[in-house]
Write a protein that binds this DNA or RNA. Structure first.
Lengths: 142, 142
DNA sequence: CTAGGATCTAGAGCCGCCTCTAGATCAAGC
DNA sequence: GCTTGATCTAGAGGCGGCTCTAGATCCTAG
């Protein structure tokens, strides 16, 4: 586990593109300022990979870059601002709760509709009837 | 329940802006072509409200407008394409499953970190110790 | 007749998040 | 020395999804 990783290696290991890595750096969401090698090329550490992995989890749950940047700044500042970090985390947790509710509402709806259409198609395949009264809500003939 | 609703009324009842309603219409995600009154103003029905409500649930779960448009077209075409509708629905269901997994992974992480910070702050408030070894992963001093 | 409010159209603008381009630089292998 | 491949910078471009503007039209109340 060498602590001297090129941007290409980091891209490969995280799955982020090289472009995105540079973009994230400009956006200030890297844990610590990136070291530079002779020639000006970026040198990453295992810690950077870990931090990026964290960021990817947050992004996968739609945390805005601005919030990640805010959190990153707080962590970079060091001990003493734990209450603010907590606030950022709690705020995203509220979002997650709300979004999970949205997703399961949609999931219920889709499961219902999928069920209806599966029945419909089964019937159709079995050549039973052409009764169309059982269409899902909102999709009856206008 | 009059079936003659102005765009303003629809906006009020759905919570969508008037701009968004016109935008959605251009995007082709309205169940049926909007009727027009004398003078060219849009006339909506209760059915439109129901359809928009469905669309809002789908959007709230991040279904892309393109997918909603596709589904809308299929419904507009009428009976006979149930298999394709099913495919659209199942595709979004796959997305929902994956996204729910993302959200709960993030939720676990956040709950863990919130727990750590709460403990840290409690300790700090109670003036017990300044041991910083218990920092969440990825956030130790560099 | 007139003023206010709601609506219309076409099109521009904005925000978040990347994604890509152009042209320069450097290090290694033939 | 020369090519190839990785990297660099600054900045442009793209996409999804709205959001807003300008200027016209229409309806109603005073």
């Amino acid at each position: 586990m060498p602590d001297i990783l090129s941007i290409g290696q980091v891209a490969e290991r995280t799955g982020l593109s090289i472009h995105t890595l540079r973009f994230y750096e400009r956006e200030g969401i890297l844990h610590s300022p990136v070291r530079r090698g002779a020639g000006g090329n970026r040198v990453y550490s295992e810690q950077d990979i870990e931090w990026l992995t964290l960021c990817m989890v947050l992004r996968a749950s739609d945390m805005p870059l601005a919030a990640i940047r805010r959190y990153t700044e707080l962590v970079r500042e060091g001990a003493g601002n734990e209450a603010e970090r907590l606030a950022v985390l709690r705020r995203h947790r509220e979002y997650l709760i709300a979004q999970m509710a949205n997703l399961s509402e949609c999931m219920d709806l889709i499961n219902y509709k999928v069920g209806v259409y599966e029945d419909l198609i089964d019937e159709g395949t079995a050549d039973h009837s052409c009764n169309r009264e059982a269409l899902p809500a909102d999709e009856g003939p206008s």
